[in-house]
Computed example of a mutant assay.
Amino acid sequence: MSIVGVGIDMVSVPEFSEQLSTPGSTFIGHFSVGERRDVADRTGDGARNLAVRWAAREAVIKAWSSSRFGLAPLLPDTAVNQVEIQSDAYGRPRVRLHGDLANAIGHLNIHVSLTHDGDMAGAVAILEEPAAG
C-alpha cells in the first residue's frame, strides 16, 4: 500500500454557523440526509458537528488534488458535494463518495480524522492505494 494524497482543512465554527443560519440559506442542503440525521442524534452544537464534516469533505478534495500535482483538475468545484461523512455506531467517521468523485477515486482507501478545538473544526484525509493482490 502507498499513500497517494494527503489533505487537511480547518473551519471556523462561528462563521460556519452564521452561514447556516443566514435567512434564505440553502447551505444545509449540501449535507446528506444521513449526515443531518447523524448530527441531530448527537448532543452539542449541530453547527459544530456539521462544520467538522465540511472540513473533512474539503480535506478529501485537497488530498485528491495533491495526488494530481502537475496534472489538470478532473473534478468540478462542486465535487465537495459528492463527499459524505458517515459515522458508525461508535461515532467513528468514514468517507462515502458519490458521482464523478466515486468514479475517480472510489478505488482508493480513504482514511479521515476529525477534531474540534475551541471555535475551530478540522479534519485530515489520507488517500491510500490498496495493496495489489
Rank of each mutant, 00 (worst) to 15 (best):
A79H: 02
L20C: 07
T43A: 12
I110A: 03
A56P: 07
E128A: 06
I3N: 08
R94Y: 03
P93H: 05
N81M: 04
S67N: 05
G122F: 05
D41N: 15
H111Y: 11
A102I: 06
K62Q: 12
G5F: 06
A59Q: 06
Y90T: 12
A63V: 13
G106Y: 09
Q82D: 15
F31S: 02
H107W: 09
E128D: 07
S65G: 14
H116Y: 00
R92S: 08
G122T: 14
A51W: 05
V11M: 02
H111M: 08
D117V: 02
A132F: 06
E129S: 09
M10L: 15
R57P: 00
S17E: 15
Q19T: 15
Y90A: 14
S65D: 14
R36W: 02
I105G: 01
R48V: 06
E58K: 04
S32F: 01
W64C: 07
M120R: 03
W54Q: 02
L127D: 09
T43Y: 04
M10V: 15
V39M: 10
R37T: 15
D45V: 03
S12A: 13
H107T: 11
A51N: 05
R42K: 14
F16D: 03
G133I: 06
A79R: 02
G5D: 11
W64N: 06
S66V: 00
I126G: 00
T26W: 00
D119W: 01
V124C: 12
D41K: 13
S67M: 14
G46F: 00
A125D: 07
D100N: 11
G70D: 13
H107G: 12
S87C: 12
A89G: 12
V4I: 15
N81Q: 11
V124S: 11
N103H: 11
N109F: 02
G7W: 05
V95C: 00
P23K: 06
M1V: 10
H98C: 07
R48L: 07
A102K: 13
G24M: 08
G99P: 05
G106V: 00
A40D: 15
R48E: 13
P130F: 04
H111T: 07
A63R: 04
W64D: 11
V83N: 03
I8Q: 05
R96G: 02
D117P: 01
G91T: 03
H116W: 04
V4D: 07
I126R: 00
L71K: 14
S66W: 07
G99V: 07
A63Q: 10
E129D: 11
A89L: 13
Q19S: 14
D9T: 03
S113A: 15
L75S: 11
L71W: 01
E18F: 08
Q82R: 11
A47T: 08
G122D: 04
A51H: 06
M1F: 10
M120T: 12
T22M: 09
P76Q: 13
F69P: 00
A132I: 11
R42M: 15
L74H: 10
I61H: 05
